[in-house]
Design a protein around this nucleic acid. Structure first.
Lengths: 367, 367
DNA sequence: GGAAAAGATGTAAACGTTTACATAGCTCCG
DNA sequence: CGGAGCTATGTAAACGTTTACATCTTTTCC
């Protein structure tokens, strides 16, 4: 209506790319929008996200132009000046398997709900890649959810800029203060082993997690404590080394079968190894739970589907991701005064068939 | 040795932050490195990644300074000028479940192998969020792996800048040319249903995938064709609507049980629904495979673990992610002359117990 | 009716990089 | 000895934004 229609529009039309739809979109910048709408870059920028500062008609015109041109702000450029990326980095030891899938789900949901993106990296165990992955995130993320059961203070110092918002998930305790979130590994393992002992088992083996892994160490500690409290003598030959993989679980089970005096129950430090053990035992013709009872840890979705359904220590895995992300977002919202969270996620014992208890839950509940 | 040691060093030391280790790391920029090393920004930049242009001692000095200061380049700033982010975007319909976990694994591995990061987003089905997610990636990624079984040309035009490197994974065919990678849905479904018919089944039901989903439509097409080729009349009451979820599988199975004339076999359009159906049948006291045989699709890792082990159409899911990423990286490497790939990933029938065939593979192979 | 306040817009600096171009100090050759 | 041709480095522009500040116009108030 009241904007000068003659010269401005012609000039605009002369350079306007929009009659070649989708041709040059790749490079459309706020400068293009500004020119096309006949305003300065500053006004264009304001019209798009601080709209109260600009006249209503101008705002409308700029916005219309922007959407017609398919303008999308360049996040790199924006973050350069605002120092905000609205992205969080996620570093997991691996991307394989249900455990991490569930973690990611919790993280992603929470992040998206608050308008954050996720950038994902798997930091292969302990190696120099963790450092690389962290460096690659510089300038791309506002904060980090870091899961690395081999984490150390030294690594923290070397890779994390001091004061950078990080939530440590399932990491060993550090001297440097951080927000941390851990699973009740010790308690969970303790409860499972106590349960097995309560069923009358006297020889209870453990399939250990990866050496140097914090979760694994804690679960072993819980196992030993439960044995001691049940008045059972520790038996070194029943503590089998493992690495959380199914293959390790199968190998461990076979090793136990070769023992002169077999165990009557096995506690596997995670469900993956438990599943491997079940396979190996079935293969060897050993009945589960009648000859050997089995308990796992994590309660991954698959646990209830295998035969016999796996007793396990339930961890709400996706909730773990959610909580970690929530803490991180909270930190990002209040950058100033830091008081560090140190939370642990509770576990619950889930008794199904594989441990041989009577009051077992069904394996395949109808959804 | 030969560099002027007096004034330069003193000045450097006066402003040097490095005696407060890890205090101001957050903001350490190439400017700091340059000042500290006594060179210009340009030289610093060159020393760090175009090292042949700078004198050996200078290079060493700059690099030493950089690592002492924990300098990490700001990727946003860099990408602004280089137009490269070394990051690929991944858009999946969802993040839940084994299927996507496997996809991600393939993508992540391939990307990392070539020095690329992944930025991940779940585009909830068809909604406006897909557009949002795509916009959020502007300026952060060099290309995109996009999986969206409800993808359309219209959506493509609206959200993807023309010429932007994208690989469509499991998307419906489009008029606009794109690199695409699809599963052999039709053939896979056809083979499974033919197999069931070959076992003597006359009434074979299908639990359909989500309406409007390309994969689902193709699998239905394969189902119908196989029926026809086996000389079986199509029966509309045997085509049950679903949405790929376990719950839908269970509900579908119950609906089939309520039929006057029950089917003797069920083809579920994915393993999730198959698992749901198995649960519901067990719950109802119907024997699988003796009373009703079941076949799934995807062959997710869990398929072999359930009881009875699930016959399925095997898809190498992580290889799918790998291939898609490989294509994308190839495109990124040769930005010029585009010829569009259109590939399909083969499927193979995996016969286990749930379909009742004799030569069944064991359910729990020892890893 | 004029000054002050408010409103709308433009100008330019800044963010952290990379890189084309300019400059300075060499070495080498005729 | 005097340039030509290196080599090593510095200067400054550019990338696409946001925003403090300046400027111009309009409204408001006495």
């Amino acid at each position: 209506m009241d904007r000068p229609a003659s010269a401005g529009d012609d000039a605009g039309a002369r350079f306007a790319p929009h009659h070649e739809p989708g041709r040059d979109d790749l490079a459309v910048t706020i400068k293009d929008v500004a020119r096309e709408a006949g305003v300065s870059i500053a006004t264009a920028s304001r019209a798009l996200h601080r709209s109260e500062l600009v006249a209503p008609e101008t705002r409308a015109r700029v916005r219309e132009t922007a959407s017609r041109l398919h303008y999308t702000p360049h996040s790199g450029a924006r973050s350069l000046i605002t120092n905000r990326t609205h992205t969080i980095g996620v570093l997991l030891p691996d991307l394989y398997g249900e455990f991490f899938s569930e973690i990611m789900r919790g993280i992603d949901q929470t992040a998206h709900r608050e308008g954050y993106q996720c950038i994902l990296s798997s930091a292969r165990h302990g190696g120099p890649t963790l450092e690389g992955a962290l460096r690659a995130m510089r300038g791309r993320v506002d904060g980090l959810v870091l899961m690395s059961p081999e984490f150390t203070d030294e690594l923290s110092r070397r890779t994390l800029p001091a004061g950078f918002p990080v939530v440590l998930l399932n990491c060993p305790p550090t001297d440097i203060p951080h927000d941390t979130l851990n699973i009740e590994n010790y308690e969970g393992a303790y409860n499972m082993v106590r349960h097995l002992a309560g069923l009358g088992h006297r020889r209870i083996a453990i399939l250990n997690g990866a050496a140097g892994n914090f979760d694994a160490a804690e679960r072993l500690r819980g196992y030993r404590a439960a044995l001691a409290d049940a008045g059972l003598a520790p038996a070194p030959e029943l503590e089998i080394a493992g690495d959380f993989s199914e293959a390790a679980g199968a190998a461990g089970a076979r090793a136990l079968l070769a023992l002169a005096q077999r165990p009557t129950a096995i506690f596997a430090a995670n469900d993956g190894m438990a599943i491997g053990a079940v396979s190996a035992l079935r293969e060897a013709g050993v009945a589960v739970p009648d000859e050997i009872a089995i308990g796992g840890f994590d309660d991954i979705p698959m646990a209830r589907y295998i035969d016999p359904a796996l007793s396990s220590v339930h961890v709400d895995i996706s909730a773990l991701g959610e909580r970690a992300t929530a803490v991180l977002l909270e930190v990002l919202r209040h950058p100033g005064h830091r008081s560090f969270t140190r939370a642990t996620a509770a576990t619950t014992l889930v008794v199904r068939q594989s441990c041989g208890a009577r009051a077992a839950q069904p394996g395949l509940p109808v959804p």
